[in-house]
Amino acid sequence: MTWANKKTQTLQCKQGAVRAVRFNVDGNYCLTCGSDKSVKLWNPLRGLHLKTYSGHGYEVLDAQSSGDNSHICSGGMDKTVVLFDVSTGQAIRKYRDHAGTVNCVSFNEESTLILSGSLDCSIRTWDVRSRKNQPIQVLDEAKDSVTFVQVSDHEILSGSADSRIRRYDLRIGRMFTDFVGKPVSCVNFTRDGQCVLVSAQDTSIKLFDKDTGEMLNEYTGLKNSNYKIESCLNQSDTHILSGSEDGKIYVWDLVEAKLCDTLDHETSRAVHSISHHPSQPAVLSACGDNVSVWESNSEAGDVS
């Protein structure tokens, strides 16, 4: 089994509804964003709660840790983007320029920038290094709420509720807009950076060629009609995982688009946020008020 298929831990987050769960860069820790205005740091594989970060004024919707694990950025319904210091738990910066709920945040690769997508149809880029409170640039090309932002070394990828994904290529200075047809809930680069995985409010997830915008594959079966369901790729780009509104995680083979497995949470609640370990077959999924940790049941065998 190359994908996670066994639930090994359940983190009782005790922070209300868990809005998002994110692995850190090396996959040893994870962050959960709760509706009780807090961000929590966990060791998911051992189920340890390490620290709570508070400083938001309303529900936290997304968080990401920086590449050196020293900072955490988070955005929430209080329209702010907050930068936390990991060790002290203090909020170092609060960026208040968005006019609406911040749906998603992302560091750039060097963690010198924070990009935040918001309900106000814009992505704002914040310079972590300076003390300015104004964004460097506002990418307001979206016509509807920006739901997801991803960053590669020279690209900014955003999904929006206007059914488009936008890719800003900083090297060549162009913006590519692809119409997907349905409001986009999640976009992801594949790990090789050649393709884009798009979750829209549809019964399928689509894999697009990054350069041409053509659809390479389609993964059907899930249910995504109301929520911001996230999808991700596994550590080696061989499988595609997605949450669903029927309380399951769907796992497809990337090439064959065949449904390999469904990880049932035994609940009717939507599994809306998932995050894959960067190097191991382990997945975190947020459902309701707790986070499930899924690992491959043959992992021990692999190690031995």
């Binding site: 460097i136 200075g173 590519f176």
Partner: peptide
């Protein structure tokens, strides 16, 4: 479904992206 337009990133943005 694709549209492509010219887009000018901010100078500082480029610098931060090392581009």
């Amino acid at each position: 479904t694709r549209e492509e337009v010219e887009w000018h990133p901010d100078k500082l943005l480029c610098r931060r992206f090392n581009v």
